[in-house]
């Protein structure tokens, strides 16, 4: 099954709708609660990053019995130093975003923690593509 979501860049309050929908869908399909939780949290962190740092983007999800693949694509500023961005605590979030509870610099580390594979393709000035997979522990 394939899903596609548009994540608006200007609307903070709507961030989380796509990951919420993924969570409901995976639950209905009967996936293990831990798998559902890991996939939904990883996607939410990615979604929020697209809103805060990149002016929005799109998310494509492929659900297979043994594997969930989530691809987040944006045309924002890109990430200058990926190794640095992956460190816990590194954040360039402005103060108004921090007031909302973001900017701990834990989003990308969380994605890494909750997924089985994570690939970041990014180019400064062009954008960022995050590809992540969560294995479902089911036989294909």
């Amino acid at each position: 099954m394939k899903l596609h979501f548009e994540v608006p860049g200007d609307d903070f309050t709507r961030a989380g709708e796509a990951s919420g929908e993924l969570k409901r869908k995976l639950k209905r399909l009967g996936f293990d609660p831990d798998v559902v939780r890991r996939a939904a949290i990883a996607m939410y962190e990615g979604e929020i990053n697209m809103v805060i740092h990149a002016g929005g983007g799109v998310v494509d999800v492929e659900i297979l019995p043994d594997k969930i693949t989530i691809i987040l694509t944006d045309y924002g500023p890109g990430i200058e130093d990926v190794d640095k961005a992956m460190q816990e605590g590194f954040s360039t979030a402005p103060d108004n975003i921090r007031m909302l509870g973001f900017g701990a610099g834990m989003g990308l580390p969380n994605i890494k923690k909750y997924t089985d594979t994570l690939n970041i393709k990014t180019e400064v000035g062009k954008g960022t593509v995050l590809t992540m997979t969560v294995l479902t522990n089911k036989q294909a």
């Binding site: 939410y44 929020i48 909302l100």
Partner: peptide, 14 residues
């Protein structure tokens, strides 16, 4: 944190 994002997180973490 009493905002929408907190509610989203509460749902995700359950």
């Amino acid at each position: 944190m009493g905002n929408l994002n907190a509610v989203a997180v509460a749902v995700l973490v359950n």
